[in-house]
Computed example of a mutant assay.
Amino acid sequence: MPNSPVVPTVRRRRLGGTLKRLRKAAGLTLDEAAGAMGWIGPKMSKIENAAQSIRPGDVVTLLKLYGVDDPEMSAALENLARDAGKKGWWQTYSGLVSASYADYISLESDAEQIYEWSPMLIPGLLQTSAYARETMTGATTSRAPHEIAALAELRLARQSVLTRHDKPLELCAVVHEAALHQRFAQRPATMREQLRKLLDAADMPNVTFQLVPLTSAAHPGMSGGFTVAAFPAPTPDVVLLENLYGATYVEGDDAIPFAKAFERICATALSAEDSLARIAEMEEGHRK
Rank of each mutant, 00 (worst) to 15 (best):
N3D: 14
T9N: 01
R12Q: 11
K20V: 01
L22W: 07
L22C: 07
E32W: 04
A34S: 11
K43N: 01
S45V: 00
K46R: 13
I47C: 00
E48T: 01
N49K: 05
A50I: 00
I54K: 05
R55M: 03
P56C: 09
G57E: 15
V60K: 13
T61A: 10
L65K: 06
S74F: 01
E78H: 15
N79L: 06
N79M: 10
A81L: 08
D83C: 00
G85F: 01
W89Q: 10
W90S: 10
V97Y: 01
A99S: 13
Y101T: 14
I105R: 02
I105M: 07
L107G: 03
S109Q: 11
S109A: 14
D110V: 05
E112R: 14
I114G: 04
Y115T: 01
Y115S: 08
Y115F: 03
E116S: 14
P119I: 08
L121S: 11
I122T: 13
G124I: 06
L126K: 07
T128W: 11
Y131I: 10
Y131M: 10
A132W: 09
T137A: 13
I148D: 07
L151M: 15
E153C: 11
R155Y: 07
L156S: 15
R158W: 09
R164N: 07
L169M: 07
E170H: 12
C172H: 14
A173I: 02
V174Y: 01
H176C: 09
H181K: 10
R183C: 01
R183Q: 15
Q186L: 09
A189P: 11
A189N: 12
E193W: 09
L195I: 05
R196H: 12
D200M: 12
A201G: 08
Q210P: 06
T215K: 15
A217E: 12
P220F: 06
G221L: 09
T227N: 07
A230G: 00
P236Y: 03
V238H: 00
V238D: 05
V239G: 06
N243C: 14
E251A: 09
D253S: 11
P257L: 00
A259V: 08
F262D: 02
A267G: 13
A269F: 03
A272F: 10
E273A: 12
L276C: 13
I279N: 00
A280C: 12
A280N: 15
E283L: 03
